[in-house]
């Protein structure tokens, strides 16, 4: 074996030397400025005309707690309806059948194209269009009795959500490699079984972050149902300040509760993401 050729001069040995820490002046200055601004805001609120004792008192008032429960019940149910509709519509949208495709596109167009608050009002006032509803010969009822604030809010929020969720779901399904469909077909699976067993589980991984986003949006969108008398958090807070005129205090109470709920949802989403990340992490064995 030949000896390695001699190395050229002029390139000093840097081993053992450390890289000096940077001072990061800008970070320190910007942090100090932000602390100042925050302190000024806190001082303004402390001296402003807010009776913090009312905030404290109503934060755990029975009506407010009932409101937050109603808000969460509605958010969960409407989101569930939205996800079911979203999956069905996304599958219809991606099907080779032109009729299903058109229906799905039309649904998304209609419910994304009009304001949510308008849809809620329409559902709530359905009795103006159809005084009685039912199945001819089997069952019928007065629409005002059936279309309670609860049902109107559920339909309005859920069906609207379905239009948005269908696009999220479609994006997720499109993100799955075409080879996965082919491999599923090659072992004899039909379209729907391949979707259910192979494509949707992989799409879920992509879809959960935007769906988490949508659910947080839904928690807050339930506040729109206050206009149709559904007793959710904001509606109940409003009812209190109509009586005692402590408007800002009760809005702060509602705001704190919304913030708390959303703060709890974020770690829940991470747990769900981990569940659907199966097989994607190169875990050491």
């Amino acid at each position: 074996m030949k000896p390695a050729p001699a190395l050229a001069d002029g390139f000093p040995d840097l081993s053992g030397m450390q890289i000096a820490r940077e001072p990061h002046w800008f970070r320190w200055i910007s942090a100090a400025l932000i602390v100042l601004v925050l302190a000024a805001i806190a001082r303004a609120f402390a001296n402003g005309q807010i009776e913090w004792s009312y905030v404290n008192r109503f934060l755990t008032a029975k009506v407010i707690l009932e409101g937050i429960v109603n808000t969460m019940v509605m958010a969960v149910l409407a989101m569930a309806l939205g996800i079911v509709l979203g999956i069905v519509v996304a599958i219809m949208r991606l099907s080779p059948n032109p009729v299903l495709k058109t229906v799905a596109a039309g649904y998304t167009w209609l419910f994304r194209g009009t304001p949510l608050i308008l849809q809620l009002l329409l559902w709530f006032n359905l009795a103006l269009v159809f005084p009685t509803i039912g199945i001819p010969g089997l069952w019928s009822a007065r629409a005002v009795d059936v279309m309670t604030p609860f049902l109107a809010a559920l339909l309005g929020l859920g069906i609207n959500q379905g239009a948005y969720t269908s696009e999220v779901m479609r994006a997720g399904m499109l993100s799955v490699d075409i080879g996965q469909y082919e491999a599923a077909q090659a072992i004899g699976m039909g379209r729907l079984r391949a979707l259910r067993r192979i494509v949707l589980p992989q799409a879920m991984r992509v879809v959960i972050p935007p769906l988490g986003n949508e659910f947080i949006g839904m928690v807050k969108a339930t506040s729109l149902a206050s206009v149709i008398q559904y007793p959710e958090l904001l509606h109940n807070a409003e009812n209190i300040y109509y009586a005692n005129s402590r408007v800002i205090e009760l809005l702060i109470v509602a705001g704190l509760w919304y913030l708390l709920v959303v703060s709890i949802l974020t770690p829940l989403q991470m747990l769900l993401e981990r569940r659907f990340a199966r097989g994607t992490l190169r875990l050491a064995r």
Partner: peptide, 26 residues
């Protein structure tokens, strides 16, 4: 129909250039 085609496919096994294993399954 899709079902009949699925039944015919069972007589052949296919191995793809890019494997196409299902990543969420062991």
């Amino acid at each position: 129909t899709e079902r009949e085609i699925g039944r015919q496919r069972l007589k052949t096994g296919m191995v793809f250039q890019r494997f196409n294993l299902f990543p969420h399954k062991t």
